[in-house]
Design a protein around this nucleic acid. Structure first.
Lengths: 206, 206
DNA sequence: TGTACATCAGTGAACGCGCGTTCACTGATGTAC
DNA sequence: TGTACATCAGTGAACGCGCGTTCACTGATGTAC
């Protein structure tokens, strides 16, 4: 009945790979019931384990939130990088920024509470001082500014970058929060809004 | 020592104009310590009154949050209207939308937690079903679309409106949350970002 | 003007709740001999 | 291969906390006569 011993990342013996199970449950709670429902007892309950057992893996509830933010930063970073590198595969390189913007909004829509944990709600304690989240933010800024570097004078880059980030951030949150129109054809609307953002930065023809 | 009786909106006899005092204290708590710290006991403590006394004025803690959202909607609505009507006093009418945008971001920066209560954080229960907040949102959309109606084909209005709202909303939140650059010259940066938004919708010269 | 009374805004005590965290423990795992 | 033991991941019971809300009350206000 028992599987053979496998290297190290195997189905666990003692009780489980509790650390990861706790993070996964925490993420479920976060997305289902929001950040204020993120409680250690609720997380443990979902995993089917007693609450104190979590202390063998995290020093506190806050540390679990930090873990979520780090996980989110890694995932979102991968999505953005993949999207921005997509230009090499497909047509021209002018679309790279637009694709990255779409990926940004797509990630936020797919993981609304996690996105808010990293980038919203008063810039949560869990994210505020976190290196992974700070890196993600800087990386996103850098992607934007690099993509724009060819088209704009250097002096305009910071404001232009903030502008594009505002469009993506604002759009993502309005959709996530259901404040924008109901989501029919949402992808098309996102695309058109982001295209308008790009148009603001288009080189003036005269 | 006692003031003469005044019509009805006077300094109160019994103990105070508790309803307003509670709302004011709630607003302080909200801005100082965030929405999760909004507790009935803390609010009553600040007013210097026992917690149960609040029940003579609000049926529940949630009702206080709703009251705050309504108050915020009224104030913000007045700010936006004032800004949009300003065009009649000053130069051309092309700037009306820009001024409204500035007023929008200015209100959010002056009342960050209240803004988030109305427009952010998963579109809070306190605001979600609230008529005053819904009206504010619709009024803001209408202002944008009316201002744009002269410049764009009707079919483009919804997307253009969502675009401008995204810029203002995203910019406001990035600044509020301290995710954008530190606030030196913040007003100037806001202006430039909003101008970029307008540029996206400028009639193409050719 | 003075008294009796209804109204209503306040009070302190108490309820039950879920929370984060600590504690002393138990029992399984993996290791040394 | 078998036994003794250290390690470590789990447990249940308990702590103290602040919370929203209910209750029966008190005391001031304003009104009717």
């Amino acid at each position: 009945m028992m599987a053979m011993r496998r290297p190290s990342s195997s189905v666990p013996y003692h009780h489980g790979n509790l650390r990861n199970a706790l993070l996964a449950a925490a993420r479920d709670v976060l997305e289902e019931r929001g950040p204020s429902a993120l409680s250690l007892r609720e997380i443990a309950r979902r995993v089917g384990v007693s609450a104190p057992s979590a202390y063998h893996h995290f020093p506190s509830l806050d540390a679990i939130a930090v873990g979520l933010a780090e996980q989110g930063a890694a995932e979102m970073g991968a999505c953005l990088t993949a999207a921005s590198e997509d230009r090499r595969r497909s047509s021209g390189d002018g679309k790279s920024l637009l694709r990255t913007g779409e990926a940004y909004v797509r990630f936020a829509r797919a993981n609304p509470a996690l996105y808010r944990l990293m980038f919203g709600e008063g810039f949560q304690p869990a994210s505020k001082g976190n290196d992974a989240v700070r890196d993600l933010r800087q990386r996103a800024r850098a992607m934007i500014e690099t993509a724009l570097a060819g088209r704009l004078p250097a002096a305009e880059l910071p404001v232009a970058g903030l502008f594009l980030w505002s469009v993506a951030h604002g759009l993502a949150l309005l959709i996530i929060d259901g404040q924008a129109e109901p989501a029919k054809d949402a992808d098309a609307v996102v695309l058109r809004v982001l295209q308008l953002g790009g148009r603001a930065l288009a080189r003036r023809r005269r």
